[in-house]
Design a protein around this nucleic acid. Sequence first.
DNA 1: GATGAATGAGTTTTCATTCAT
DNA 2: GATGAATGAAAACTCATTCAT
Lengths: 214, 214, 214, 214
Amino acid sequence: MSQEKKLPRRERDRLRQRQEILAAAIELFSEKGYHNVSMNEIAERSEFAIGTIYKFFKSKEELYNSLMLDLSDRFHQALTKALTQGDSPVEKLRNYIRAKGNTFIDNVSVIRLYLSESRGARFSIKAGLDAEIRTRYEGVLRLSASVFKHGVESKLFNDIAHPYHLALALDSMANAFLLRWLEAPEEHPYPDNPDVILNIIFKGLLDASEAAAQ
Amino acid sequence: MSQEKKLPRRERDRLRQRQEILAAAIELFSEKGYHNVSMNEIAERSEFAIGTIYKFFKSKEELYNSLMLDLSDRFHQALTKALTQGDSPVEKLRNYIRAKGNTFIDNVSVIRLYLSESRGARFSIKAGLDAEIRTRYEGVLRLSASVFKHGVESKLFNDIAHPYHLALALDSMANAFLLRWLEAPEEHPYPDNPDVILNIIFKGLLDASEAAAQ
Amino acid sequence: MSQEKKLPRRERDRLRQRQEILAAAIELFSEKGYHNVSMNEIAERSEFAIGTIYKFFKSKEELYNSLMLDLSDRFHQALTKALTQGDSPVEKLRNYIRAKGNTFIDNVSVIRLYLSESRGARFSIKAGLDAEIRTRYEGVLRLSASVFKHGVESKLFNDIAHPYHLALALDSMANAFLLRWLEAPEEHPYPDNPDVILNIIFKGLLDASEAAAQ
Amino acid sequence: MSQEKKLPRRERDRLRQRQEILAAAIELFSEKGYHNVSMNEIAERSEFAIGTIYKFFKSKEELYNSLMLDLSDRFHQALTKALTQGDSPVEKLRNYIRAKGNTFIDNVSVIRLYLSESRGARFSIKAGLDAEIRTRYEGVLRLSASVFKHGVESKLFNDIAHPYHLALALDSMANAFLLRWLEAPEEHPYPDNPDVILNIIFKGLLDASEAAAQ
DNA sequence: GATGAATGAGTTTTCATTCAT
DNA sequence: GATGAATGAAAACTCATTCAT
């Protein structure tokens, strides 16, 4: 807040306007997809003139990229924070799942957009964007992996898989459960109880003796 | 093979042409994305006239849908077969992961296209297509869930989570590992070794005593 | 009939085929208009291959022109015959109106097409066609005018207008009444009773005394 | 004129541009026919970019419909006005024929277009347009019929035919004479002298005694 | 001689971007 | 600085015509 005070009013106004444009664009892109939204629509929805939008963003592509980077910022900050707060690895992972759930819920409309960017969409809209977002995502995964690693080193966890693989597994499961919940919120359990997800990794599926036999 | 012989030559020619068009379209779509490829480009790449393309596919959308339904077919058949072959639940699930890996590898470019264009598959290219694909996917998930259920009922598996959740978890993990492999084939273990994935679910992460304490 | 016998079978077959194509084309053109009918449709409807159609007609335009000339032949023969049969001018004009009505009824589907050709459709589909049809139409009008002229010369008719104008008036009235009848056959009187039309010209609308005052 | 002053300049400019586009379209359509004119040609002729044309008219069809509705408006207003001004029925009908002639002359090119494209106005370009135009035309005919009816009721006219038929007859005659004039303006009498047409209905063609014998 | 698959020029329409006001 | 009208390249798609079989 004190940080905002430092900015001259001009600057603050510009930032607010920028956010309003981005908000309108997010709505539209997530409703209809990048290619089915025209700059004119964004102008109408945001109640700015189309020329004004081009004052803020050099092109439609740049607007989209800004959007995704903003979103990615929000995501990775929340997840990084969750993974560094809490006393035990278990606590940290629980926080992670909770934070992921909350961020999903808070950004329901853009989540799909975001997931497609952090997945295999190589040629996506702009190659560069892709790389940036994936780098950040990679950072979160590595942090998560280090939590698993620490849990194993402190003998809290069994060494059942490479920590990075565990991180990847946990993340993908969370995404899958969250997407289910997005589609049918009442039928799927996710966001209230992180343990539904954690247990799948935490508890052993097979009895120790039989597992050994496999 | 003898089956092909049965088709009149005309028919065979048409099928081959159709495949050539689809192949050109896959190449282009996965290089540049659905919206950045024009029908004229597909015509050029496939060395047919644009009108000929339209003899085979009523619209660009239908061409895309054919691609995706073909892909979905291949997955559905391979995975259903895998889940119904094998003596034990463990065997079936291992087959499942293997089949998924193989089908993925065999169809890398269409998959890349699917991932980039489906964007979480809501506004996708055509809503109808999406529904069809999801129905098939749901069928596979339910089949997988029934394998887990059977394993639990026969006391082979611990009852650590709802079978459908286990199915979803396994599937999403496989997808995540496959996407990694897609990005850097040499660094990632998956498709060769299904146990890397299966172990995460099969072995217990926590000691029994500590798990109880949670 | 004896004339047809003279033609070798080959020739007769060709003529029959030609008629079948023209019949299919008439149906389609009158249903949808020249520009909304494709050669493929004509091929399908007539059950000939498209290549075969091009054996008979050099182009779509030529097909259309043949159609119109055939139609125009039928029309002008019928009308010319009517105007030359009958003892008195009144009889001839009555025959004319009757013949026009019958030809309309027999060719309901193409009438509109034909009327638009014999009207102001200068640039129509092919300039040349237009001229030919209009020349024939002009011939009928002149024949009709000569009947009026004869009626006046024999003191049967009052000399109320130039014979050609009378011919034009009668013809346009007949067309207008027939078009009405085409649209709502039960509401309009036309083809049964030619006198509904003839009376408008035949009887005086104004009393003799008042007419003089005008 | 003062009315135009009231419009903001922006609005006036837009209207002028719209008119320029319509004028270019009329020229081209009446030169070559609706289907033989491309939107790009209209853009070139009117010296606007193609996109600009689409700012004013949603589609080629709408552009055409605007043209026809404008024409229909002009006729409807002129004819309605003519039929309601003048002291006697005779005066009104004379006004009607004059107004029809004048409007025809003022709009020769659009009329030529209408005649060629409407093809009897059934499958026309757009069914809806046709309905609208015919409704207006019907209104004029009914108004004209009421003038005839009034003339008969006031014993001014003989009751020689149903008033609606008289209206239809007069109108179709006017159309026919006007079309003649359209083709060869110098040879045909129409627009200067309405009585050439009116007399055909007004004066009795046959002597009273002979008419009775018919 | 008949066939109908293949052709590709030409059509309508959209929309990111510019720039005069 | 903001505006939004004008632009025109580029896209999806149609269909008269040809010609190898």
